[in-house]
Amino acid sequence: MKQSDGMTVIVKTITRMSVWLIILYGIYIILHGHLTPGGGFAGGVIIALAFLNVMLAYGRKYTEQWLNVRIMYDLVSTGAILFLIIGIFGIALKGSFLANILDLGELFKLESAGVIPIIDIFIGVIVSMGLFVMVWTLAVFHLEDGGEE
């Protein structure tokens, strides 16, 4: 099958050079969610698009070797559970669900706003891994037994 072999050499080279930059940009957007526009949702989609870029350019088999997709399924659930655990810590320490339990810090600093950047990271994990897993499932299904029978 031609589709599983990926695209031309040009596309593969550009993808190899740019994919880590895209992931780095996504991480930047997630971490600066409380200072600049962006946050967990936008950064998560950027990271998912970087993985998707690899999948489209190199094909399914190579991506399966490069990434461990099973761990991604688990990371989605882990992100959701950690979000909940932070909420329960809020009950234990401050008396209300999802209360801001950490030190607030100084305005306009990266390590400020207490619990907000941490929740942002968890949301980024849920969104990026979840969306990639979704597209992965669609692609695997389509290649195995899409229109045949």
């Binding site: 969610g33 946050g39 607030l104 400020s112 942002d120």
Partner: peptide, 12 residues
């Protein structure tokens, strides 16, 4: 909340 982005401070 000490978060400069008010939208983020509302949603999180």
């Amino acid at each position: 909340t000490h978060s400069a982005n008010i939208v983020t401070s509302i949603i999180l």
